[in-house]
Structures are given as structure tokens and as C-alpha cells.
Amino acid sequence: MTTDMTKGPIIPQLTEFTIPLVLGNLFQLTYNAADSVIVGKFVGDDALAAVGSAGPIMNMVILFISGMCMGAGILMSTQYGAKKYEQLERQISTTMLGGLAFSAAIAVLLIVFSYPLLRLLQVPEDIIHSAVMYLRIVFVGLIFTFIYNFFSNTLRALGDSKVPLYFLIISAVLNVVLDLFFVVVVKWGVPGSALATMLSEALCCLFCLIY
């Protein structure tokens, strides 16, 4: 539900808006943490080290995309507050199209240069191949990361910070369930945990599109 935050008391509205925003940022970083815990417990120390080594790169990229969408959200919220709806529509469509193209290009670059990046971080040779595989599978789904962040920041720009949080919580829970399935049941190890992350983000995007 959209909310016109230019009307009514400021402090209660800001508090109600900010709490889901902070929780959402925390939940978005739980993907790699859940992957690390599950592969560490059920696969072994090398798998834990591989996922842990990939974590900084993965989180940096996620935060970069999140920040880019947040910047676009500032423009959207300004236009929505000023009731410039035609400009708002153009801003939303431009951000969507430009962000999709940018995310696809970045995903390709990261998939190609995953190995050199991990070598730059001095990841040990005995785990680097597993870490590369993890990153490449996650980066295949990078476009889903952008779509979720785009929709969530668009909703936040219209005054709704709760619905994106609900979708993200569902996605985080799905990630844990799929992690357990692919790692414990199917025995796919590190690639299975990456696949769980990608699929949970894809489902989160589907929920946003339906909404």
C-alpha cells in the first residue's frame, strides 16, 4: 500500500518506514551466511572456506546494486511527493531498462573474472575452484537480485517498506529450505548452496512481479 508521507506527523511515519528498511538490509545479507553454515555443517571445512571466500565479493556486488536502486528510489520518491506522476513513470521505466542491461553486463564480467578476483584475494588453490563455481552460479542470478531491489525500492519510494520486507523474509526462508535440500538430500555441496540462493532470489522476484 502506498503512503503519502508529505501529510501527517513526521516522526511516527519515519519510524514505521525505517524499521522494515533496516531489517530488509540485514535479511539480504543472510543468503551467504546461511550457505556457509549449512555447507560447513554438512559438507566440510573446505566447503565452508570456499563459500566464505566468495562472500565478500558476493556481498559487495549485492550492496552495489542495492545502492544503485536506492539512488533511483530517491528520485522516484521526490517525484511521487511532488505529484509529478508522468516523470515518475519515466523514471521507473528508465531505471528498470537501464538496470536490467547494466546487471546483465556486470553479471557476464563477474562470471568471466571470478577466478582472477579470487586469486587477487589470495584464496588458497585447494578451495578456489569451489569458490569460483559458487560465485558463477550466484552471478547467473544477479539479474534477479537487481529486479528485487528495483521493485522494493520503487515500493519504498511510494511509501511502502513493509511488503518488500515480507518478500525478502520469504526468500530467506526458502534459501535455507533449498540449501538443506540441495546440500543434505541431493548432496550437491557448494554448487547446490549457490543454486539454492539463485532460485530463492528468482522466486522473490516472481512474488514481486505478481504483487
Rank of each mutant, 00 (worst) to 15 (best):
M1E: 08
M1Q: 12
T3A: 11
T3S: 04
G8K: 12
G8P: 13
I10R: 05
I10A: 11
P12Y: 11
P12G: 08
P12A: 09
L14E: 12
T15H: 04
F17L: 08
T18I: 14
I19G: 01
L23D: 07
L23Y: 12
G24W: 04
G24R: 03
N25S: 12
L26W: 10
L26T: 10
L26N: 10
F27E: 06
F27Q: 13
L29I: 07
L29R: 10
Y31K: 08
N32A: 14
S36H: 03
S36L: 14
G40V: 10
G40N: 04
G44I: 12
D45W: 03
D46C: 02
A47V: 02
A47C: 04
L48N: 12
A50N: 02
I57E: 00
I57N: 01
N59A: 10
L63C: 07
L63I: 09
F64D: 06
F64N: 03
G67H: 06
M68Y: 14
M70F: 13
L75Q: 13
L75G: 03
L75E: 12
M76S: 11
S77H: 08
S77K: 09
T78G: 02
G81N: 14
K83C: 14
K83H: 15
E86V: 15
Q87H: 15
L88S: 07
E89M: 15
R90W: 02
Q91S: 15
S93T: 15
S93K: 14
T94C: 08
G98L: 12
G98S: 11
G98W: 06
G99S: 08
L100R: 05
A101D: 11
S103T: 14
L110T: 09
I111E: 10
F113A: 12
F113V: 06
L117D: 05
L118E: 08
R119L: 13
R119Y: 02
Q122S: 13
Q122N: 13
V123N: 04
E125T: 15
D126H: 15
I128V: 15
A131E: 05
A131D: 04
A131R: 10
V132Y: 00
I137V: 07
I137G: 02
I137K: 01
V140C: 06
V140K: 06
G141V: 06
L142A: 02
L142H: 02
L142Y: 00
F144M: 09
F146N: 03
I147K: 02
N149R: 08
F150M: 05
S152F: 01
N153Y: 05
N153P: 01
T154S: 07
T154E: 09
T154V: 14
L155G: 00
L155E: 01
R156F: 01
G159E: 09
V163N: 02
Y166S: 00
F167H: 08
I169C: 00
I170D: 00
I170L: 07
S171R: 06
A172R: 11
V173Y: 00
L174Y: 05
N175T: 09
V176T: 07
L178H: 03
L180C: 12
F182I: 10
V184W: 09
V185T: 14
V186F: 13
V186I: 15
W188C: 03
V190S: 04
G192E: 12
T197F: 03
L199Y: 04
L203H: 01
C205W: 02
C205L: 03
L206N: 01
F207A: 07
C208H: 04
I210G: 01
I210M: 13
